[in-house]
Design a protein around this nucleic acid. Structure first.
Lengths: 208, 208, 208, 208
DNA sequence: GCTTAATCGAGACGGTACGTCGCGTCTTGCA
DNA sequence: TGCAAGACGCGACGTACCGTCTCGATTAAGC
């Protein structure tokens, strides 16, 4: 469904390469410095200039690899987001709960919290960045949820024609919204109530 | 529950006012110019300088009222967001659907779409702005949903101890998420599926 | 020779006056504050705004009396410059020496030293101010020197057709120049050498 | 006695220079533009902004080289002041007269007249600038006068222990004073009377 | 006493220029 | 070629003062 093959950043096009090769230590130093500056200042106040200084690298060395702030940050934070292995418990609620909790853990990282909305700004006016971000950050989550839902469908707990997209939106959207705007505390109770709502609905059941 | 009385910007404390009063026409011209520049350039590329020029006002006149871009934009867009009157159809799904559609209409405005993520950046590092934004933009929505849920509880369709907060998060979060990041098309079908999911859950029902 | 009747500042034209009279305490407070700010910051960094604040007075109250910084400062420092009574010793060198020393005393006041060149800037582009400054600061000195020279002529020590103007320039110019630019120390030795040079010339005399 | 080697501005310390070198054309364009703006507006109304615009250069390029207006102007006008070769006539009065007339020519240049008092303001509060100004503008004059006096001493016309400093002050001070404040016309007659006064004194001579 | 006019403090207003920051591009000399 | 260094043109920042203009509150003088 999603190729996962997009470039986030600065690999040279395939043509023959001559002359001095790019220093991989510079690359890593830049990524590290980017993460540091993001954690300290947040997205809006992070500057290429400060990243270069922190990394002990010339500005040109950064611009040679990434065209602008957005892709650099995307690559930097994509190195930090691993949902980790999610268990197959055989219980849909438990599986989805584990997923939501994993997302919450990521969003509670100060660096991530400082950074994501800034990325969203860029995304709003930059389709290339949008697809890069999507493929690196959203697609993997989508895959996780798809697996969980596939298993639930196989167990007969969910309708086979369920719209997976909207389920993902219903699980991730509220978490993001709470993290960024509404301020609802992001804890295990939140995760449970959310999963419960998504699975069972809020409607009163005759037999409950 | 929510007073709604916070100041977004530049009202002087009520104490004795002496000297020339602030010109309300300047105030309005600034708000109008801000909205124009937001629509044209989006949040990140909107500059105070251009707003001042467009409004025919000195930069200092803007800084005298708002300390920075964030609060100015908050006030400007808060003048533009009216969910309008929501009908009482007697049907919970229909009422919530009308609410979600109203939110979608707002988020599809180009100006709003250009602006909200930028605001989110500021919010991430500025608690004052966060509470201002919450009280002006989020609280009114919360009130609308509360009314709908109150009526549904009264009809016996929902449990009386339902957590309203999370319902709001579940309705608004996915819409914001889709608008900003995931790119799921925001149309009536989306609204219907979302409301359906929230009300009934995704779980397969014995009798369905 | 010089009337001394020029206006330095803001007396109203003679016409009938009704309404509230100008507060002389405000006038004095402004002059005092001006002198303070001059002493602290020098001419260039003195601002009308700071003078108003220091004097506890509105800016308009200053502008009502003085059209700009130059005349205000002129009036302020002209209250500070009194050469004092110069003695008639019967000895031309002693008399002129006393005059030069008095000028030196004035120019060594920090406030004066900070202020005079700034005034010169204004003077360079403002003939009205130039004549005000001349009449308040230069004319009195001229008068003093004229008296001394008159007495010397009467004693037969100087030629009757001596050009008084250039003598004044030769006495005051070097002192100003040393104070502002060349940095030659302004002490009694300087005064003595200067007077000696002016009176006797630098030329070697046969009989000396 | 005076090295003449002080820096007026913006030369980097001698250490290893890496990176792009400063563009000498920009340097020259800035100096030229500065002189133009000085001639038109005088010191006080000359702005860095207008100089940058006139020179076709970014403001930062100016600030990179000169910390402020004072040193910039000092360097600019120091390129304009050449007393020219002074003749050795064998006659002390003629030599000094030529020197004074050369100074007068410089001070009658509109740009110089507009500029010098402004510089004096800066000098009054900035010792670094003072020494720069001294070494570039005053020291060369001092050298000229020294040569003239040396020759006169060699001819036996002046005492060998004459204080050269005060002679310089006595020649330059009155000219500056007349130019800036007293308003005595600066013409050849002034030069003659001044030199005569300095050489012979104002005192009546028995045999004259 | 009432009117009228000027002054007072405070402070908003349209401006101009400031000096700084960061951008993304462009040399320069070494590796 | 890559790289560190750093100058460059540029755009915007947020601030400081400028000199002018309301305001409401005093404070006389003339009616």
């Amino acid at each position: 469904m999603f190729s996962g093959a997009e470039q986030v950043a600065g690999d040279k096009p395939p043509g023959r390469r001559r002359g001095r090769r790019r220093d991989p230590r510079a690359h890593q130093a830049i990524i590290d410095a980017t993460l540091e500056m993001l954690a300290v200042n947040g997205y809006a106040r992070m500057t290429i200039e400060s990243v270069a200084a922190r990394a002990g690298v010339a500005k040109t060395t950064i611009y040679r690899r990434w065209p602008s702030k957005g892709p650099l940050v995307t690559e930097a934070i994509s190195t930090q987001i691993h949902l980790g292995g999610l268990p197959d418990t055989g219980d849909t609620r438990a599986d989805l709960g584990a997923f939501v909790r994993a997302v919450i853990v990521v969003l509670r990282t100060p660096m991530i919290r400082h950074t994501l909305p800034g990325l969203a700004v860029e995304v709003a006016g930059n389709p290339d960045l949008a697809s890069a971000l999507t493929s690196h950050l959203v697609a993997p989550k989508r895959a996780r949820v798809s697996e969980i839902l596939d298993r639930a469908v196989a167990r007969g707990e969910l309708e086979p024609d369920l719209d997976y997209e909207i389920v993902l939106d219903m699980l991730v959207g509220p978490v993001m919204w709470s993290a960024l705007v509404s301020g609802t505390p992001l804890d295990d109770a939140f995760a449970d109530r959310l999963v419960d709502g998504v699975v069972s609905g809020i409607e009163r059941r005759p037999g409950s």
